[in-house]
Design a protein around this nucleic acid. Sequence first.
RNA 1: GCCCCCAUCGUCUAGUGGCCCAGGAUGCCAGGUUCUCAGCCUGGAGACAGGGGUUCAAAUCCCCUUGGGGGUACCA
Length: 445
Amino acid sequence: MSSNVRVRFAPSPTGYLHIGGARTALFNWLFARYNKGVFLLRIEDTDQQRSTEEATQAILDSMKWLGLDWDEGPYFQSQRLAIYKQYAEKLIEQGKAFYDTDAEGRKAIRFKMQDGITEINDLIHGTITFDASLIEDFVILKADGFPTYNFACVVDDADMGITHIIRGDDHISNTPKQIALYKAFGFKMPEFAHIPMILGEDGSRLSKRHGATSVTEYRDRGYLPHALVNFLALLGWSPGNDQEIISITEMIEKFTLKRVNKTSAQFNNIKLDWMNGQYIKSTPVEQLTIDTKRFFEKSGIDMTNIPQAWLTNLVMLYHERFKTFQDLLDQTRFLFTDAIEYDRAAVDKFLKKEGVVELLKEVYSAISLVDNFDKKNMEDSLRALTVKIDVSFSRLAQPLRVSITGKSVSAGIFETMELLGKEKALKRLGYTIQNLCEISETIKL
RNA sequence: GCCCCCAUCGUCUAGUGGCCCAGGAUGCCAGGUUCUCAGCCUGGAGACAGGGGUUCAAAUCCCCUUGGGGGUACCA
């Protein structure tokens, strides 16, 4: 059974798909899917100066990446100019609009606002009232023949049979103008639902200075689309229980406008990271391996000679340890290059110490004797060494970790060495020992 | 300036007059597991913006103040 619910997402192609726009699209999409209605996409490219084709493409790509498929469209307002002109002229004929010339001599059509009280019956906010006499006679058709936002929006929503207008609450103040237009045309009034906006982490309007604000940026930083969708869904909506991780299917089953709140929400990257980590953990290794390969390649890592099994091992080893693919790359970069960077603090703390050179020499000779260079043999060998020279394991592990990874933090040392391979592990150890010996005071590491 | 919206832990939220001296998540702190870190487990600190009402009873209803956000374009 399909309902007659028809909703739309109507972005203007003046930039990438914004996080706030994505959430608006998501809510419309969820509403349509819950109601077995139609979700359509309309590109509002009526600003000839600012609209670009690249932006349109980026928006479409982001929608697809998020999994927000549309049933109709995309429609382009720039291709419907004749329709708007016709409707504007109709208003002129009825005396509800008039031609107006501004100081620069540009001739446009303005809509004549009638005085009175306008009521919006908002599905989220309840009744909102405006005094229409405070609203000026606004332009509906610009000098260049293009419609303005409020006009094109109403004509299209009516023409496309939109039943529910779900959009950001920054549009609340546009609504009385649009309602006046609906009435002037005698169009059937849709339902309005103004959802709260998403603010930056400091509570101000989300903008470039807050860092990543577009879906594209999150994709490029190695986030999973479902994690982003999950996170966005919980900004302003909740399933009504304590559930945090919620599948798309469940969202569709539970999505109602009644459970959308009125309060604007601040974006929180920390929680998004946590959520992405949760999704990473529940994604099968096989899939993650594919994603990892693709991400690393795009990041400029040469993956041509990397064996599939090796990469799978890497992903398994880090499965519980990384939150985004960028994070994984940062953590494992030392495996892909010989030009590793040594962390200053780690070197000072674990390498520039009494007896470390001797210790590392022992380690060097011990592991050079390990034939089958796997974590099991490595562990047997090094555990035996700690007993032989009577040191705690952590006293051995940390200097070793720093000399082969450059950092004091890594995955398990045996597994890490196995991934690195005997040749490289010994090379790095040798390099460290040599440098520590050569300069006792000014170590160049 | 004028108009409109909003107001629960730092953040996201549950809560729709008694079940709330307010629950969950994240982040933070402490302990445990441990070769480091992460993860995982256990515990902890942390909020109803303020002031008036209404009511036997208010986080929940009303008013004011304050704070935040939005609009006020031939942008969308």
